[in-house]
Design a protein around this nucleic acid. Structure first.
Lengths: 219, 219
DNA sequence: CCTTGGCATGAACGAATGTTCTTGGCCAGC
DNA sequence: GCTGGCCAAGAACATTCGTTCATGCCAAGG
């Protein structure tokens, strides 16, 4: 297997722990002599020796000839931007028969009821993203339960097959469905394949956003 | 106001931009000569001079006598531990009629098929947590679709009302249900309230873990 | 017994890097 | 015109720091 971690000696583990601690405190990596002092090692060459092993075992990466050129690998990253979370505002509830809260884009200050932390990697370069809590079991045909959270990217159009937050004007009803253009009308297909689709007039359907995901956190 | 930023010269802004860029790429700060090259400056003393100003104006902090001892100040939260993600191993698939992959706890090396990034705040102090991908629609009565991901905390016991990953020995079937002791038997309640519960002999039910959450990422 | 490989020690070399000194252009204000 | 503040260039100087060398202990294995 590739990248498997062999057993580390006590000194090596101590150095690894010191690296984590130092990086939390200083925001720049330690020098070899910093490690030497911090871990009660007799010589810099010992540190160098153990660092080579840590690198070979895939725990760190070193940049030769560069002072403090040590990076922690794997594990929870530190300042790695791609592995941080982004706060997504939870704007309100979604339920059949109630209007969908609007998203005042520019004013980040329009205070959401709460904020949902999501890994930045899930959102990539997507634009305005917000979240809605599902109230009641009206979305059960989309396999979404009471209390679930849906993550939505604001959009007013959708391509065939995308799951959207749709507002049916006449029925005064919000719903989550797969979206298809079909000739002059629109087909809204429940996620649950055992349910029948809804056909609607395009003028009666207002797309509010695309559904990026559904999250159900239990207790 | 305290710490107000005075106007920066063009060279100073360029250095500041270079600092940000370098830190994103390298995870260790640049040396003065790195900055000199990256910003087309004639001398290291010029860099030093401008760094002093940037420090005086509160944009950076420098550690004297320490190579690469430059820290960016302010900015968006960097190393905020509560807002980081944790890699959760996706161990395999769960489907009715197939055994559930076991989680070799001690060997971090037992390589998962992939890793799911989750905000650390969702897991808090919980112990061994892993994830399973749902194959097929056998979990549809728990409102879980093909392709969904379930996040599981390893456990062999459960309290009433908790949702568990259960293995029915006789039926050779894995399932996600609410768990209740009821006299001498066990009631397994589907999440979908429209479905009927299953009653089983405790000796036939093996609890593998508690379900922390369900995640459905669309396209 | 001897060799081999993992591990540790101490010292030194040399490159990387922070710091300082000298010099000089530009410009507002007295 | 002279002065002082701001900014910059070029060159050295002094540390810091990565790397290497020589040496020795010790257990596993032929």
């Amino acid at each position: 297997m590739f990248g498997a971690h062999k057993r580390l000696s006590e000194k090596q583990e101590r150095i690894l722990r010191f690296l984590h601690q130092f990086l939390e405190e200083h925001s720049y990596p330690p020098s070899i002599r910093d490690i030497q002092q911090g871990c009660d090692v007799s010589s810099t060459s010992v540190v160098d020796y153990n660092l080579r092993i840590l690198e070979r075992e895939g725990h760190i990466r070193r940049s030769p000839e560069i002072s403090r050129g040590i990076e922690l690998l794997g594990r929870q990253r530190e300042t790695q931007p791609a592995f941080q979370t982004v706060g997504v505002p939870v704007l309100g509830y979604i339920a059949a028969g109630e209007p969908i809260p609007s998203y005042a884009a520019e004013s980040w200050a329009s205070d959401p009821m709460e904020t949902l932390e999501l890994p930045a990697s899930w959102l990539d370069g997507r634009g305005e993203v917000y979240a809605l809590k599902v109230k009641g079991q009206s979305m059960i045909d989309a396999l979404i339960d009471d209390g679930d959270t849906v993550v939505v990217q604001r959009a007013s159009e959708a391509r065939d097959g995308e799951t959207v937050v749709a507002w049916l004007k006449a029925e005064q009803e919000a719903t989550l469905k797969r979206f298809y253009h079909e000739g002059g009308r629109v087909r809204l297909q429940p996620a649950n394949s055992q349910m029948a689709p809804i056909y609607a007039d395009p003028r009666n359907v207002e797309v509010q956003g695309k559904v990026l995901g559904v999250i159900r956190l239990l207790r």
